[in-house]
Amino acid sequence: MPGGLCLVKKDIRILVVDDFSTMRRIIKNLLRDLGFTNVEEADDGKTALPILKQGRIEFLITDWNMPGMTGIDLLKTVRADPELSHIPVLMVTAEAKREQIIAAAQAGVNGYVIKPFTAVVLKEKIEKIFERIT
């Protein structure tokens, strides 16, 4: 396992937000491969927020296009909330327009992975985020 992740506590609590259960499961399994087993799920921004507000989530992985509350709105809400703004956010989405990526970057995203992705890419981006914050 690359050095970046060895320094990270494996018991950190991660929230995966996606409206497709298939995708949540894939991400969850890949996280498990990386040694992260403390993973919670939500199917859109609206259901994610109450979980985030409980205050134990340390890393957020979210889709963009979801009914109810989208990932970009969730990201903005998280960044605007002093209690949550420190949480690193990785966006995993099929939205691939330049303007969207720029908007996500401006909203304070920590990483951006476009679907469909490979296990290697997802792992690499997660590692990169943890490298920066540790």
Binding site: D18, F20, T22, M23, R25, I26, N29, L30, D33, N65, A94, K115, P116, F117, T118, A119, L122
Partner: peptide, 19 residues
């Protein structure tokens, strides 16, 4: 093991077509 992981990740096509 890595081939099985690839099969797993390739299921993400369901999300894309679903959208």
């Amino acid at each position: 093991r890595s081939t099985l992981t690839e099969i797993l990740v390739s299921q993400s096509v369901q999300d894309i077509t679903g959208q």
